[in-house]
Structure formats: C-alpha cells, structure tokens
Design a protein around this nucleic acid. Sequence first.
RNA 1: GGGCGCUUAGCUCAGUUGGUAGAGCAUCUCGUUUACACCGAGAGGGUCGGGAGUUCGAGUCUCUCAGCGCCCACCA
Length: 860
Amino acid sequence: VKSNKAPYCIPMPPPNVTGSLHMGHALTMTLQDILSRFERMQGRDVLWQPGTDHAGIATQLVVERLLEKEGSSRHKLGRENFLKRVWEWKEQSGNTITSQLRRLGATPDWERERFTMDPDLNKGVNKVFVQLYNEKLIYKDKRLVNWDPKMHTAVSDLEVEQVEIKGNMWHFKYPIKGMADTFITIATTRPETMLGDTAVAVHPEDERYKKLIGKMVVLPITGREIPIIADDYADPEKGSGAVKITPAHDFNDFEVGKRHKLPMLSILDKDAKIAAAEGAQIPEAYIGLDRFVARKQVVAEIEALGLLDKIEPQVHAVPHDEKSKSVVLEPFLTDQWYCDAVTLAKPAIEAVETGKTQFIPKTWEKTYFEWMRNIQPWCISRQLWWGHQIPAWYDDNGKVFVAETEEEAQKLAGAGVKLTRDPDVLDTWFSSALWPFSTLGWPEKTEEVKRYYPAETLITGFDIIFFWVARMMMMGIHFMKDVPFKKVYIHALVRDEKGQKMSKTKGNVVDPLDVIDQYGADALRFTMAALAAQGRDVKWSNSRAEGYRNFATKLWNASRFCEMNGCALKIDFKPQGNKHTLNRWIVSELAATSVKVSDALKAFRYNDAASALYQFTWGTFCDWYIEFTKPLINGSDAAVKQETQDTTGWVLDQILLLLNPFMPYLTEELHAHLLGKEKAGKEDWLQTKMWPVFDKAVIDSKAQEEVNWVVKLISEIRSVRSDMNVPAAAQIKMQLKGLNATNQQRLNTYLDIIKRLARLSEVEASENAAPKGSIQTVIDEANIILPLADVVDIAQERERLKKEIDKANANIERINKMLLNQAFLAKAPEEVVQEQTEARTEAENLKAKLSQALKQLEAA
RNA sequence: GGGCGCUUAGCUCAGUUGGUAGAGCAUCUCGUUUACACCGAGAGGGUCGGGAGUUCGAGUCUCUCAGCGCCCACCA
C-alpha cells in the first residue's frame, strides 16, 4: 500500500484455472494492462487484482476425463480422493494461464494473486451464505431446474443453449372417461413425458372444449385418470387447443400444476431414464428405459392402441448444455438452494439508474436493466464435488443447520446430534460474485478493503454481464453497502476476420501465443488496442498485426538512427528552452499528441489513442522531423546541432513513454538503450515514470504554422513531379512567384531542407514570368514554377492543369450553392458563413492562378 | 414474439455536439537519399444499404424498407 497516492483499483476477471490464453484474454488483459500502466504513470496507487477461478464444472470435467483415460472415475476414487486429485491437477496445470499472461506483458499485482478456493476466500463465501440464509435471502426449494443427466447436476438457465433440432409433433388422442368414442387430442414433441401427465388443459373460453372441462381423461398406457382443466395457458390457436400438462417435466406445465394443485409425477431419474413414480402407474416394461428409447416405445404403443392421430415433422428448439453441447438437458424436479435475486437486484438496478455505477458504452445498461428487472431466483447449488461445499448440515430428520463451520452447526443442532453435510457445492459464479472484496481480505477488516473498495474500473466482455457483473453488483451492494466498481467498460468479443465466433470446431481459432511468436507481444497488444473501437465485435486481422509489427520495427530503426547520430537522452533536458523552429515545432506536436492519447484513454477510446501515437511516431516524427533535421545534425552550426540532437533524443524518449502502456517490451528496451545501458535498473523503468504533462508554453503555434507551410510546399512539389513523371533522381530548378514576405522568409530559412526533400537544384523567389515549358502549381498566394523545357510533355501538363482547374471549379460551385442561398446566409452560424466565404476566395484564387498557368502554356 | 446492434474505398474498420468523407492492408507508378524495402515518395478508388422526412445543410437526427448478426423469451 503506497498510502500517499490516490488508490486506483481494477479487479481482473479471473480466468478459469483450466484455461489457456485465447484471443479474448489477450484483448481484455491488454486493455486492462494499458489502463493499469497508464494510471500508474498518472501517479495513482494502482491495484490490478489478479487471480484465477476454480471453474466448477469445467475443471471437474477435465479431471474426470483424465481419470477416464486411466480407467478410473471419480466414483471409484470417492469424493475426498477425487478432490485431492483435482488439487494436484490445479497445482500442476493451473498456472498455465497466468504464465501466459506474463508473456503478454500483463502487470497485475502478482504477489496478491488469489484463487476463488483459497482458504480466506472460502471464509468469505461461507459468511455470505450464512448471512443470506439468516436473512432469508437464501432458501431451499423444490422447483424445476435444467438437469444435466450426464454430469448429474443442475445447470444455470444462463448456460442453456437452445439448439434447433428436426423433430416431430405427435398428436395423440386421449379417451374421455364415460364417453365412448370421444377423444381429446393433444400434441407433443416429447411423447415419453405423457407417462407423467396429470391433466389436460383447455382455454376456459374455448367453445370446442367448454363442455369437457371437469371431465376425466383416461391416460393411455398407464390407465390413470386425469382431469380436463381450464387454464389461460392453453392457447386455442396452437395445436388442437388442448394441451397435456406434465408438471414435473416442463417449465410452463410446472406453473399450471402449481395453480391447479396437480400432482407432480417425476417419471425420470437422474440419468433421465424412466423411473417408477408413486401413483404414476407406469408399466414395468418402461422402467429403466432411456428417455429417447421410451419415446419410441410410447409412440409405438399409442399407435397400436389406435390413438395416434398424426405425426407432423417440425423443427423445434431443444435445450442443450452450452459447454458440452451434446447433452440434452432435462427439466427436472429437485431440491435446490436458491438465492433471492429479485430482492438483491433492486438496489443493484438503482445503483446503475442513479449513475453510481456507469456502463461504458452506455448502451449496455439497457441489457443489464432488461435482465435485472426480469431476474429469476438464482439456483446456486450444483451436484458437483469441485467447488465450495454448501455450509449446511442435516440431522437424521432432515432438519437443516446452516453455519460457517461444522462446530457452529453442531452447536445449533445440539451436542450429540449426528449431522451430515449437504453434499452439493455452490455455483462457480457465487464466489466470483464476491471477487471485488473477497480478494481484498474481506471479511477481515483489512487496509486493502478500506483502500481499494470500491474499484474504479472493471473491464470485461459483454458475454458475462449477467453471469458476473450483475452478481457482483448484487453482492457488493448487499455486503459492502457500496457498489463494487464505479465504471464498467464493456468490450466486444474477438472474432475471426469474417466476423465468425472463433471455435475449435470451426477451426478458425487464432492462438495469441502464435501471434506473439510471429509478430511479438507488443504488436499483439497494439493491434488489440487499435481494434478495440467501441463497437460490437473485434475482428482479428493478421494484416493489422503485421502492420503494427512493422510499426515496432520502425520505432526500433528510429532509435537506431538516434544512436548513430548522437541523439542521446539528457535527463535534465528542458524543451521550452529550444530556439530552433523545427525543434519547437516537434515539441508542440508531441504535446498535442500526449493530450490526445490521455484524453482517449480516459474515455476508453483505445483505438484513438493508438492511432494518435501511430501517426505522430511514424508520420510526424520519422517521416518529417527526422528528415528535416538531418541537415541540421550534419550542419556546421554547433549550437543548433546540439539542440537538435538533444531534442531528437528527448522526443524519442517521450514517444517511448507514451507508448509504454501499449508496447511495454520494446519501449523499455529502447529506453534503456537511449540511456546507454544494456539493461535498465528498476529506477530507470519507464513504467515507474510519470506520464508527460506539458506546459502550455511548450506549444508554439507560430512554429506549427511555419513548418506546416514547408510541409505543404514540399508535398506539392513532390506530387507534381510524380504526376509529370519527373525522374526521382533529377535535380530540378524551382521558381516561386508572388511569394509574400512571411513565406519568403520561411523559404530562406528552410532552403536547404526544401531543396533536399523536394530534390531541387536551385530555388529562387522572383516575379519573372514562367519560362517556356514550365510546369506550374500553386501554394497559397504563390505559384510554384518548375522550368523543365526539355523534359516536360506539354500535352500532359495541359491535361493536369485542366484537371486541377476542374477541381477548383467544382469546389467553387459547391460553395456558391451555399453562399448564394438566402436561407443559408440567414440561418447558418456566422462563423460557418465566414469560413465558406474564405474558402471560396481561396478556391477562386487557386483557379485564377491555374488558369493563368494554362494560358501561358498555350501561348508558349 | 421482445430487445440490441450492424450495413462507409477491393478487404478490415474509424468517423465524440449535423458544416466539403478517413486509417491500415491491398492495388498502381516511381525510388535519388547509408535509421528503416517489416522502407521512402506519389496516385487511383466511396452517389456513406434503398426510400422518405426534419434542417439553410444529414454518413451523423427521425421514420420506413431490405439484408446480416447477437441477446432474451417461447415453441402443445
């Protein structure tokens, strides 16, 4: 704790221990690292809190597969040994991801690394559970859950993926008791569930069935009698208008069943095989059949009974487990622990409404609200072994005692009462929900809790807004009486170049480690920043990465240039002391860039920050400044030479500083180099330096104007030369006609530079008429005349001038359309009118000069 | 069914209060200059998905149509 600095906390979304670095990590961690480094350079006491998540199901699956290969299983091992095995695996392989993060250059506070199943974090989990239980915000309930018949566990609604499957709609005729040859037809996509039907529902207003309400149906196969009930749920428009009700195997039917107090017959076991349910009267032949086998069996028997009305092929959505994909989940009636999310969500919604927590971009708040306002009870128990075992104990009568430890539970139950612990574990997201404070040592009253809660910023992907962000909000507010973070920056997901989600099955996965091998970690990071515009997705592009690798090389070469030309870094260099315009200019441009970059980062506009740095470094510094100053460095004016060398070295170092959050490896290396050291000591590290803030005095707008004119002149000459196919090697003459005093002065000052960069042999400012066979162009008030009598192609020059004149004409016309419009003059702001008027004058001036040049050409 | 978003140069994308459309890559031309060919100089290329509206003025605001994508819910 560096107590003299303002704290800045950013909790790292803990990657799964099972994971290895993928592009999504590379993106999110890069963005977090850039921000962490940036804030550190602002002098903040930054805590970027790292750690890993135990990832219940995922990890258990990994180890179970391992066991399977060994011919063993978790059941053979038993719970205790199995857990031992998982821990062993975690010790060996669990830090793969964190070491990969180091390769990426991520700099969280590694010494504070936490794991969601660390002892102190477990303590927090138990405390939260017990308190919520005592507040009646956690309770046990028998409801339908999505059941995974392979893993034998409840699965979160959020982890259910609806997959479109080609199936059938079977229409069955159910006979009505006491009415010979009268049937009521129902339709179903899951015939086997009919064994558990406990009613048939029709709409109360449905004329077709009104008279049947209250009658009994004799359920085929089982012979059970079930009532025909009236319920709004039955939609007369759908199917036959009559619907079978299977409360224990369908979420809607469950609600209907509750309304009508229907029996709930659970006819499947944990493996989703048909099981004998009390009172269900399922024939012996069905018991133990797999659900899909039973389906065929039921259909066959119904058909044999002559009760099959028809079969229609139909595509319908079937719930699958998001992770394993292959497993069809089953609505299953079980006892589970629930958390009263409805209650907890209220203040969490309010916190975002009042702006205590802000989403960036703001549009994600809608997503958050949408879910939070319709939130369902959160099923927090899982029938797994790997995770936080629920701190609840039962006596022989099934009475439950919830306490943080077994001793306390025993106290509650009374001495001598034999207690058995609830075997279930908590949903992984339960412990992740506590991450912003559990990692700081809560429930202990630590310095860190006081200092770093709430966090300033959370950076994460939109895919876990519900899973994680929302839950942290609920738990944070409930237990800490304050939001867990003030800002949530939601970034997109990384997709491939075609916008497809990366997946192993599609084979379009880009491995960030391969990218690092190929282009370097710095290039990967810079690319991520450059691609991270606040849109929906980040499409990975190898060509972009290649471009930024080139950028790194460019910077490296610039540094080499500095070294070769005596441009060293002087620690006490003061840019405001510069005298030469070029040096004053580059410092001004640098200052402007620095502001752009920090403004962009403060607004999470990483791409803007990246492009400002790219442009300044490559365009302004390398392409112009270094080229401009070569003559100065090789020149005879010792004072100017020294100042230029010092400025060059210093600006390069400032670039390294600004670029350090993005490209930490290269910039540190070059910085050390600039200091003349093989390897820099800690005290020299850029990441410990302050972000440059420039005095306004350093910005010299006159210098900027002046140099911009020179740039424009050179560009103009180069463009014409190229257009007219003047050989690059040819040194030609130039005459400037009509030059005003200011620019004449500038011309003299930069004569050498202009000659060098525009490949000119002689330059003169004179009012003489353009010699025959010249090519001409215009810069502001002056004509640029390049006499090339022997080389120039008159016809080509004529074409070129005409084209330029056309352009000027079009421009004038466009502006006239505005300026001759009374409504525009009346309603547009004065400054816009002014602007356009000036633009017109300029364009007319240009046109006049070009036309004159054309006339001269024709005359010659 | 409800919600969100996207459609801008050949490709991938920027474009923050409405005021003459930008970048990288790709393409084409030319390369003198010992920091750099992972380079330098120059050029071409867009009626901003279609239509309507608001406005003096729309890539930018509103409506509408079309195509694409995502999320949630449902599917007897």
